[in-house]
């Protein structure tokens, strides 16, 4: 008999996909917003969701952490943004870039786009180098430009205004396409065209490059990445079991140099690839997934 059997989908990646879809729906539970073409402004909107999800999406129930950070910087001349900064540090210390891999709607969108058939760009030195660009985006568009204009008492959330594809896709298109919002459509001009162009380029790139926005441009991922080594939850390597075979880094779709570093989004592919049981998803010392018992005596370090 000559037949192909489809490899069963590993449980961890299925769980991750389910969590991604769940969080995307949870962050955007305001269905009424789609019906009415207006955003939700109830009490929950003062709470930041952990992932990138535009405040101006009609369905969004929470605030975008990046938008909130830029607005806090923009208002910093009159008051410090302790609440927003504290929230982001808390998210980073608890979850790190697990948020990117498991609880970010923009991350989910990018992964779904990558499933579209087409030539795929392999990672390498160039993509590793490009992964630094998001730190520049964080510094310039999220901190320096809003901060500079804050001193002049002018609000300018530069990343939201000039770059964010989530804002264009969820907020701008989400609102502008609704029949009730003719006055918003009438305001569309050069900046709208620029943002649409940026969004189209980024989404197109995601078809060929895995998580192109996440890897090269997302300042939120950059921010959480700074706290990567401190985060409580995530994919962790057991050094005693590791034999330095490099399988984890090879199979990783991101530009990591080591498991759990600033580029790791904790997707768990390395957990499934490690033949020595050296990698697991942990919350502190508690193993949530990945078998520590998978390794053999041969695989243990002397």
């Amino acid at each position: 008999m000559n037949g192909r059997t489809k490899k069963p989908r590993p449980r961890l990646s299925l769980t991750r996909r389910m969590v991604q879809v769940y969080t995307a729906v949870l962050y955007n539970a305001h269905v009424r917003g789609w019906v009415m073409g207006r955003i939700y402004r109830g009490p929950l909107k003062t709470v930041c969701v952990p992932g990138l999800n535009c405040y101006s999406c009609p369905a969004a129930v929470g605030a975008c952490p990046l938008g909130a950070l830029q607005n806090a910087v923009a208002a910093s001349a009159s008051r410090p943004g302790f609440y927003v900064i504290g929230t982001l540090i808390l998210f980073g210390l608890l979850f790190g870039r697990v948020i990117c891999g498991w609880a970010c709607p923009m991350g989910l969108i990018q992964e779904l786009l990558y499933k579209i058939p087409g030539k795929k760009v392999k990672k390498g030195r160039v993509t590793r180098g490009l992964s630094w660009v998001k730190y520049a985006v964080l510094l310039i568009f999220v901190l320096l430009i809003p901060g500079y204009y804050a001193l002049r008492r002018v609000p300018l959330p530069a990343f939201c205004k000039y770059i964010c594809p989530a804002g264009t896709l969820e907020g701008a298109l989400g609102l502008m396409l609704h029949p009730n919002n003719g006055d918003l459509r009438a305001l569309a001009g050069g900046l709208t065209l620029w943002k649409l162009g940026v969004m189209i380029v980024i989404l197109a790139a995601c078809v060929f490059i895995f998580r192109a926005f996440c890897r090269f441009l997302c300042p939120l991922g950059a921010l959480y990445g700074l706290l990567a080594r401190l985060a409580l939850l995530g994919v962790k390597l057991d050094g005693d079991r590791c034999v330095d075979c490099g399988a984890c880094v090879r199979v990783c779709p991101m530009d990591v140099k080591a498991v759990g570093d600033r580029e790791c989004v904790h997707c768990g592919k390395c957990v499934e690839a490690c033949g020595y049981g050296a990698i697991s998803v942990r919350a502190g010392k508690i193993v949530l997934a990945g078998s520590a018992a998978k390794g053999t005596e041969k695989g243990r370090r002397a």
Binding site: A29, V31, M36, Y40, R41, G42, L44
Partner: peptide
């Protein structure tokens, strides 16, 4: 528990008079 949370949040934010509603009228 996650499903209950989703249903709870979904119901609360979509009903204008509820504790999480935003009070906006249906007609705007």
């Amino acid at each position: 528990a996650a499903l209950l949370l989703l249903l709870g949040v979904g119901a609360a934010v979509n009903i204008p008079g509820s504790f999480l509603g935003d009070g906006s009228a249906a007609s705007g």
